[in-house]
Each structure stands twice: as C-alpha cells, then as structure tokens.
C-alpha cells in the first residue's frame, strides 16, 4: 500500500498570483510528512495537485518514480480526506465506505464486506446502517477516513481533516491515525496549520510559507534548529534576539551563548525556544531580565521579561514555565539556556 511521493519543482499560479513556487519535497514510503503553514500558504493546493484535482503550472508529481502528469484523479491510486467529511448524503455509512469498491465493479455484498473491515478499524461498525446525515462531527471524519482507507490507496492525503473537531475529539483522531499507521503503514501527507497536530502525527514537517518550502526536517529539528526566523515563528518560537556571532559564540543581551558549528562570523539572531530557557537566581544565569508580563496557558505560564545587558540593545525574552512560576511583575530574575547552547540564524 505504501509508495514514495515526490514533488519536483512544482509551481502553480492563478493569473498573476503564484500560489506555489518551485516546491520540491519527497515523502518516503510509510512515512508521514506534515505540510505546516498558515491559511493561503499553498498547502491545500499542493495536495489537490497531488490528488489530480488541480494541474500544476510547471513541475512534476511522481509516485514511485512515475510521473502522474495527465493521469486522472480516479487512476492515481491516492485517497484524499478533506477538511469537510464530504460523505455522500444519499448513502448510509457502510455504503459510503464501500463506494470505492463499488466503483471498481464489486458487487454490493462484497463491497460492504470489504467496507466493514475498515469501519471496524475506526470503531464504527455499529453505525454501519446509519444514514450519513445522522452522525456527529467526529464520527463523520472517522467514516471519511475509513472510506479513504478502503480504497487501499498508495498514498493517503489528509487536508486538515481534524480542524473542525474539538480538542478531545482531535486527540481521539490522533490515536486513531497512530493505530492506522501501526496496522497499515500508509504513506501520509498531512496538511495542517496546527503545529501541535503536525508534531504529534508526523515524522517530519515541511514548513510552507507563501508557496515556498522554507524547511523540511524532523519535528525536533524544526522546533530547536529552525532555518530562518519565519520557521521559528511558524513553529511557535517566541524568542529571537539580535546580536553577533564571533568564533561560534553569539553575543547579545542574553550574554555569550555557544551556537551551532559552522556558523559564519557576523550579525545573527539567537533563536531560543521559550521551553529552552530557565529562570534562575540572579547571578547564576547568562543574563538578567525584569518580569514584564505573566500569561497563563493552564498547566503552563509564559513569563515575559525585558532583558538588558552590555552586549547589545535590550530585548524581550519569553520563558515557558511549568505550573505557576514563583515570580512577580517587575521582579528581576536570572535567565539561562537549558542546554547551555543556542541556535543562530541570519535571516
């Protein structure tokens, strides 16, 4: 069932507006890649082109090395789960899931038998005879997922399928996708604007911004070693301090912090995730900051500090603290990188 999907130099323009620009991306068999980007970044267009629902202006879509140019959607062997479940309202649940088998000419009985296996996979076999219009939002998306899987696709494309569900239902769907990956090992391309969803479900994340892939890499790499300030921002990083790298050391108001090897000397931004900074006793950290804001995220709190120092202009650093921090507004605290090192980018 698993195949290799490759986008090679793919561009798509609508009139003068270029939605995708020279996008190249490879998804290895049985891997799950998340396309992460804001609305309008071109990620859904990329999936529609892969599914054969839209044509690229230039570039290729290859599956196992074969160019899909000119291959109609129904012959591509790819299944797409849309943001809306798009269940056929004139069919009941089992007949929705049996739809692809019926299209291949299977009898109604055989197609339904085939469909039941996938309904069991998504734990909805009890609702097989129910009308498609009588399901909850979560149930509808499960049926849509089962319907796509029942096609036995070479590649499963997910276009923000869980975005309309509440957080609890989403967590259920994440577990379901994990079960499906464990059982069927499909190649998955997931489009999402939710970095948490991308981090939970995907093996790697490709960050798409204004039609360009800014970075593609493992989840942790994108969070802690972003290629640009834009990637850091899209992945939820709140800190970027301007300064200068000299001999592998970044100097800024945050102090002298060792950065990655190979960094060329010159102006650079230190990107430190809010989770990678600790609040310590004044004097023990690399910098000193004054608390200017406290924002509760429930189990976590974001502590905003104004940092001043000898090595650069003042800046703002935000620290993610588990629970309720033992600090007050205006208090001066010490700040220190968790790993005693940081990551620098030039743009």
């Amino acid at each position: 069932m698993s195949s290799r999907l490759e986008f090679r130099g793919l561009s798509r323009a609508f009139g003068q507006a270029e939605v995708l620009h020279e996008v190249s991306l490879t998804v290895e068999p049985s891997r799950c890649v998340a396309l992460l980007g804001a609305s309008g970044s071109g990620k859904s267009t990329l999936l529609r082109i892969a599914a054969g629902l839209d044509d690229p202006s230039s570039g290729q879509v290859l599956v196992d090395g074969s160019d899909l140019d000119g291959v109609p959607s129904e012959e591509r062997g790819l299944a797409l789960v849309f943001q809306k479940p798009l269940l056929f309202p004139h069919l009941n649940v089992v007949d929705n899931v049996a739809f692809s088998a019926r299209m291949t000419g299977q009898s109604r009985k055989a197609a339904r038998r085939h469909a039941m296996a996938y309904l069991e996979l998504v734990h909805l076999s009890d609702l097989a005879r129910r009308s498609a219009g009588c399901l909850s939002g979560g149930q509808e998306q499960r049926v849509a997922l089962a319907r796509a899987l029942a096609r036995n696709p070479r590649i499963l494309l997910l276009d923000e399928p869980f975005s309309s569900l509440d957080s609890r239902l989403r967590d259920d769907m994440y577990s379901l996708v994990e079960d499906i990956r464990a059982e069927l090992a499909p190649t998955i391309v997931l489009v999402t604007h939710d970095r948490r969803e991308a981090s939970i479900l995907a093996d790697s994340i490709a960050v798409l911004d204004e039609g360009r892939i800014l970075q593609h890499g493992p989840v942790a790499q994108l969070h802690y070693q972003p290629a640009t300030l834009a990637v850091n921002r899209i992945l939820g990083g709140l800190n970027a301090l301007s300064g200068r790298v000299t001999g592998g050391i970044h100097q800024s108001v945050f102090g002298r912090v060792p950065v990655q090897p190979g960094m060329v000397d010159g102006p650079a931004f230190l990107v430190m995730r809010q989770e990678a900074i600790r609040i310590v006793v004044t004097g023990e950290g690399t910098a000193v900051g004054s608390v200017t804001g406290l924002k509760s995220l429930g189990a976590h709190t974001l502590v905003r500090t104004e940092v001043t120092g000898d090595h650069g202009p003042s800046g703002t650093l935000t620290i993610d603290v588990a629970g309720e921090p033992d600090v007050t507004m205006g208090q001066v605290v010490g700040l220190k990188p968790v790993n005693d090192s940081g990551w620098a980018v030039t743009r």
């Binding site: 599914a51 054969g52 629902l53 109609p72 959607s73 129904e74 591509r76 790819l78 299944a79 797409l80 849309f82 809306k84 798009l86 056929f88 739809f99 692809s100 019926r102 299209m103 291949t104 319907r147 796509a148 096609r151 494309l157």
Partner: peptide, 19 residues
C-alpha cells in the same frame, strides 16, 4: 466537492454523474 471526493475514491466521470 462531492464529485472531487468521488474522483479521489476512483469514480470515473460517468460514475460521478450516475452515482
């Protein structure tokens, strides 16, 4: 949208019209 979904599920143009 439903025809798009049907196409990705293997339905040909004629099948999309009839089914």
């Amino acid at each position: 949208e439903l025809c798009d979904a049907a196409a990705t599920l293997g339905a040909t143009a004629t099948q999309r019209i009839l089914r």
